[in-house]
Design a protein around this nucleic acid. Structure first.
Length: 778
RNA sequence: GGGCUCGUAGCUCAGUUGGUUAGAGCGUUACGUUGACAUCGUAAAGGUCGCCCGUUCGAGUCGGGCCGAGCCCACCA
């Protein structure tokens, strides 16, 4: 064994050995009865390992390794998400470098390109998981667009449709007039912009007027109401009356709606259901007409009358001028607001009405609420339970269609002659049931990525087929994830699972803390605040990355600032562990007659009894802490114990005890006993180095497959621990005395222990020697 | 705007039912290459536990208020 542990020399080698052993695969553990299953939250295929992944996979691997050592048949099922929008964007950017757009390529060719990209780069993150030591069963790896998985997705869609839970209808979407596509909320970026707020008079038929404030006067052409807050005293008596829309001369009603803010502008707001999400919602509730005045190309439509064909900005200019001329513009103010931009091309978003597919949520949400309310699924930390329940209890219907090319195409077939007629079917119908002659065409749309990942925990096990895996490993035991996808993903898995399997998808959900930059800001590439776990791993080893991250989490915290110094501290600790093992190995070599198997516990010293008691206490608390998901607490306790009790004290004591023939063998035995238990306790946290050390002692065996230590209660002895504390303070006393008298360590001048306790007199020799060891300053 | 979290040593953080002298790592200072380890050891300096009020024999810990930092969600005419 070298003086310094070199992770680079061992980590890859050990991982290959593990993989070769086959023990990541539960089929190799078939004799075991109890199972423990985790489905990995599938990273995006475009993804690269970031701190969140590193932390999350460390957590999952700790549990998998812990339960594997506890005799469970463990399955950690890995996989990757096709991540619709994200992936499509990446490939589009690639194309752009070649001067191509996806439209030039055509759908089929484009999708082919994406697959190529996936094959080339899609496995990068998997390799990175391996670097971290994740003991996933790679033979069961899944991708959300695999053929089998795609079937499950279509099956789910058809099931919902047949049950009447899926419907088609108009909805307002974020529309990018440059890309000419609807984009998702995630793709919309908000940017603070200085603009103007215009106050426009809408006149009543006879006299007076009501003034509305807007940043987008051009949309007024599509106004179908003016809304005020129902509790606004100023306008109460106007509700129900009509005003004349300027320039257009259409009569529109004044309505009341709680979404209107009394404080904003004049407290009266124009309602344009066709071009604003909130207005759309108000319009839906109040059954207002929807008038489209801006087309998909960003130009004014025929409905805009004399402004038709103008760009939005040009129309705005003219309208302001016209209003001024009519003396209908009361005033204009400087105003700063968040403008919605397309993430890709920075064009302002034009909300547009389009036809989309929806999943009715009300009925599905009910059981998903129940299982969490009744703690059938436990959410940790508990406070997220409220967040989950809150969201589900007022969830709206889920828009599941996306106008993208990369994803699961809807299993919906349209008649070519009667464009609005369609059937829902797994296979392409041979004959069109509507016109009887056309070749039916599949819907061009794809499903929201989350629709497929909602099926993840069971679809990865072969559902809807009743596979052996599904029967054996479902429901899964544990899901660990980041807080921001509690609704996007977790809630959706819960109701999907209840609907399709009748079971909960997992027993516990653990929301891990967010890893922030040391500045306290979110880690993000675009902010330049990201820290790359791979770089740090190359520098300090991946055990250290795992341990350093875990070291920083505690109880119910929601975030922590990533501190590289904990990785350094972990690296140092790992080296300390290495040298503890090295010391024990060297000590054994000196005594070639020693055989651990032959040894029996007898004639133990106080110090032996003390460390035995401590180790068994630690076994107990580490076990409990891992079971309770207190990973940070567990590793911090192990760190303190191993360094500051076992190494600082027992190892020093053992050197003295091994000089004495009477205590030599028992001391060596205790050293072994301690080391082996320590290695086992640490293995889930730092699997590589513990395995490397283990193999220094047992070349043919895997620590990964060893039994988790069992607490031996008869070793726990509080009296001994108390006695040891007393001895410790006596040693400090002696040390200080020697220091005062300026006695060098090698000088044999004895301290007169003038205390009557037996433990002092009985251990006089060791105490005095220890005091010398601890006195190493001049 | 809604929800949530945090404020303890120069920095990053522990401190589980309120109870002696508030801990660790890094950093700083001094000393030390003692056969496991300098990725180490021994020690030292460094804290009115954000501020105010309350409950209590007793508060870093419980309650209320204030100030400050940040996370998540929603996104505003």
């Amino acid at each position: 064994m070298e003086k310094v542990y070199q992770p680079k020399k061992y980590e890859e080698k050990i991982y290959r050995l593990w993989e070769k052993s086959g023990f990541f695969n539960p089929d190799k553990l078939a004799k075991r009865k109890k199972t423990y299953t985790i489905s990995i939250p599938p990273p995006n295929v475009t993804g690269s390992l970031h701190m969140g992944h590193a932390l999350n996979s460390a957590i999952q691997d700790i549990l998998i390794r812990f339960y594997r050592m506890n005799g469970y048949r463990t399955l950690w099922l890995p996989g990757i998400d096709h991540a619709g929008i994200a992936t499509q964007n990446v490939v589009e950017k690639e194309l752009k470098k070649e001067g191509l757009t996806r439209h030039q390529l055509g759908r089929e060719k484009f999708v082919e390109r994406v697959w190529q990209w996936v094959k080339q780069y899609g496995n990068l993150i998997i390799e990175q998981f391996k670097k971290l030591g994740c003991s996933c069963d790679w033979s069961r790896q899944r991708f959300t667009l695999d053929k089998e998985y795609a079937k499950a997705v279509e099956f789910a869609f058809i099931h919902y449709y047949k049950k009447g839970l899926i419907y088609r209808g108009p909805r307002i979407v974020n529309w990018c007039p440059r890309c000419e596509t609807a984009i998702s909320d995630i793709e919309v970026k908000y940017q603070e912009t200085k603009g103007k707020l215009w106050y426009i008079k809408y006149k009543f038929k006879i006299q007076n007027s009501i003034v509305v404030a807007t940043t987008r006067p051009e949309t007024m052409l599509g106004d179908t109401a003016v809304a005020v807050n129902p509790n606004d005293e100023r306008y109460k008596n106007l509700i129900g009356q009509k005003v004349v829309l300027p320039l257009v001369n259409r009569e529109i009603p004044i309505i009341a709606h709680p979404l209107v803010d009394k404080e904003f502008g004049t407290g009266a707001v124009k309602v344009t259901p066709a071009h604003d999400p909130i207005d759309w919602q108000i319009g839906k509730e109040k059954k207002l007409a929807v008038i489209n005045v801006i087309g998909p190309d960003g130009k004014m439509t025929q409905e805009a009358g004399k402004y038709a064909g103008l760009s939005v900005l040009k129309a705005r200019e003219m309208i302001i001028q016209d209003l001024k001329n009519l003396n209908l513009l009361e005033k204009e103010e400087e105003y700063t607001y968040n403008i919605a931009l397309c993430d890709r091309c920075h064009t302002p978003i034009e909300p547009q009405i389009s036809t989309q597919w929806f999943l009715k949520m009300k009925e599905l949400a009910k059981p998903a609420i129940e299982v969490v309310r009744k703690n059938k699924i436990k959410i940790i930390p508990q406070r997220y339970k409220k967040v989950y329940l809150n969201w589900l209890s007022r969830v709206e219907d889920w828009c599941i269609s996306r106008q993208l090319w990369w994803g699961h195409q809807l299993p919906v077939w349209f008649c070519q002659n009667q464009k609005e007629k369609f059937i829902v079917s797994l296979k392409k119908p041979l004959k069109c049931p509507f016109c009887g002659r056309c070749k039916m065409q599949q819907s061009e749309e794809v499903l929201d990525t989350w629709f497929s990942s909602a099926l993840w925990p069971f679809a990865t096990l072969g559902w809807p087929k009743k596979t052996k895996d599904f029967k054996k490993f479902y429901p899964t035991d544990f899901l660990s994830t980041a807080q921001e996808i509690l609704y996007l993903w977790v809630a959706r898995m819960v109701f999907s699972s209840l609907e399709f399997t009748g079971k909960i998808p997992f027993k516990s959900v653990y929301i891990h803390p967010t890893v922030l930059a040391i500045s306290g800001k979110r880690m993000s590439k675009s902010l330049g605040t990201g820290v790359d776990p791979l770089e740090i791993g190359e520098k300090f080893g991946f055990d250290a990355v795992r341990m350093g991250l875990i070291y920083q989490i505690s109880r119910d915290q929601q975030a922590f600032k990533f501190d590289e110094r904990t990785i350094l501290a972990s690296r140092n600790f790992i080296n300390k562990l290495w040298n503890i093992a090295r010391f024990i190995k060297i000590s054994t070599k000196k005594d070639s007659k020693f055989k651990i198997q032959n040894f029996q516990l007898k004639s133990l010293t106080l110090f032996d009894k003390w460390i035995l008691s401590r180790i068994n206490t630690i076994i107990d608390s580490t076990t409990k802490k891992i079971k309770n998901y207190q990973f940070g607490e567990a590793i911090r306790e192990l760190y303190d114990f191993i360094w500051h009790e076992f190494a600082d004290w027992y190892l020093e004591i053992s050197k003295i005890q091994m000089e004495n023939i009477k205590t030599k063998d028992s001391t060596l035995f205790i050293l072994y006993y301690s080391l082996f238990n320590i290695l086992k306790l640490l293995h889930p946290f730092i699997p590589f180095v513990t395995e490397v050390i283990w193999q220094q002692f047992f070349a043919q065996k895997f620590l990964m497959m060893e039994n988790w230590p069992k607490i031996n209660k008869k070793f726990i002895n509080k009296k001994v621990e108390e006695d040891f504390k007393k001895i410790k303070s006596l040693i400090v006393e002696i040390r200080n005395w020697r220091k005062e008298k300026n006695i060098l360590p090698q000088e044999i001048i004895e301290y007169q222990i003038n205390k009557p306790e037996k433990i002092f007199s009985e251990n006089k020799e060791i105490i005095e020697k220890l005091a010398k060891v601890k006195l190493n300053c001049s």
